[in-house]
Amino acid sequence: MSTSAATVLDALGDGHRRSIMEHLAEGPLAVGVLADRLPISRPAVSQHLRVLKEAELVVESAAGTRRFYRVNPAGLAAVREYFDRFWSTTLDNFAALAETESTRSTS
């Protein structure tokens, strides 16, 4: 698995971070608003956002003096690509077996 895929799974392996992702799914939010909605402190929210940002799951933007965070859908691509390759290999194996079977039945 690529490092980025493992990083994404690490980032999602925390309940608070998943909660943050769910809140952000409804639209961009500032840190303070997130902290109000979650049972954790503002510094803790900032820390989680930093991890999510490093995993490229969220992106940050500034409006005046406030910083907003929103979901970056492309961030999940690495994990998806990894499993995509796994199933591709497995189904290729299956297709090869099916080819053999069809030859057997018609010969």
Binding site: E22, D84, L91, E101
Partner: peptide, 24 residues
Amino acid sequence: MSTNSTTEIQVHRTVSVPLPPERA
């Protein structure tokens, strides 16, 4: 655990095989 679509990771693969559905 949440099933929120934004954080859902899904993969989709297809393959075509020379067998009828029953045998596949």
